[in-house]
Simulated scan of single mutants.
Amino acid sequence: MNPTKGILFKVCALFLFAIMASLIKAASENVPPWQAVFFRAFFAMPIILLWLAQRGDLRTGLRVTNAWGHFWRGVIGTTAMAFGFAGLGLLPFPEVTAIGFASPFFTLIFAAILLGERFRVFRIGAVVVGLIGVAIILYPRITVFGDGGAASLALLGAIFTLTSAAFRSLAQIHIRRLVQTDQTAAIVFYFSLTSTVLALLTIPLGWVMPTRTEFMSLIGAGLVGGVAQILLTTGYRYSEASTLAPFDYTSMIFAVLIGYFVFSEIPTSNTIWGSAIIIAAGITIIWRERQLGLKRGKARPSVTPQG
């Protein structure tokens, strides 16, 4: 274990994911989100395959024992990606990032419903506080409902982004199940493969011929996304998930900087205050879960083999 190295990989991955999202956003005015999903998934696969070959895991890393699990993870993850890309085209970059922070709260709710995990009072309180933060961000969009024009499109973007966060949470639930039987490399690769195939099925919905700039942006998004996924996976080899989790929120810094310098977007006061509340609630949950994990770790040596 090398926590410093793990943190470095994680932050670099988040920076590249922010770059990837900005490239998708740059092409979103003309290119539909389902077409962007194809570029993101297809052009990430060569990067992932080269990584597996370099590690010597090309043969063993792609074996699966739960094919249907990979399929449904791909369907749910692709849906999340499409809604997320749609939101990027309709909302400022920092706002999309902030709403996306709702995903961990949805994960806790779905874990309690689908996996039977205990939903402690502490968790419930933190989730409620986090969702209040989301509501603060969404409030300006909801209050202009029915005004038409750009306001209605922004509300639609907020709905798309929140839907994406919910589907990302469901994908995390499926990943928790998949990691019990299959390697991370297989999960990453087959997600990209499934997303590519599903995206191709959307051709009848209307694809467009991208301009040269848009074409390069979309290819770049796929390549950068593939590298980011590798860095993220590598980070977890050097450090525990609980140590790396708080650094997810550095993506807000990257979103604000990119939004300001690339898209001339300035976060609203609602976005700032809502993000602060969401981040505080999220870090509180991470801290609490880490404390419980340490307690379980101390208690484990005294437990008999029979439990």
Rank of each mutant, 00 (worst) to 15 (best):
L8W: 01
V11W: 09
L14V: 00
L14K: 00
F15Q: 07
L16D: 02
I24A: 05
A27P: 07
E29K: 11
V31Y: 08
P33G: 01
Q35S: 06
F43C: 01
M45A: 09
L52W: 00
L52M: 11
T60A: 13
L62R: 00
H70L: 00
F71Y: 14
R73L: 03
T79P: 03
A82S: 06
A86K: 13
L88A: 02
G89K: 11
F93E: 07
V96A: 08
F101M: 14
F106D: 00
L108I: 10
I109V: 07
I113A: 08
V127H: 01
V127Y: 03
L131T: 05
L131S: 09
I132T: 07
V134A: 04
L138V: 13
P140T: 04
P140Y: 13
T143N: 13
G148E: 05
L156T: 14
A165L: 01
R168Q: 11
A171V: 01
Q172D: 14
H174V: 08
R177K: 14
T181Y: 12
Q183K: 15
A185D: 01
F189E: 00
S195C: 05
T196N: 04
I203C: 08
L205T: 02
W207T: 04
T213D: 05
E214Q: 14
I219E: 04
G226W: 14
A228R: 03
L231T: 10
P246I: 07
T250K: 08
S251N: 11
A255K: 11
L257G: 03
Y260I: 04
E265S: 12
I266A: 08
S269P: 03
I272W: 04
A276T: 03
G282T: 09
G282L: 11
I283Q: 14
I286H: 12
E289P: 06
K295H: 12
K298L: 10
S302C: 13
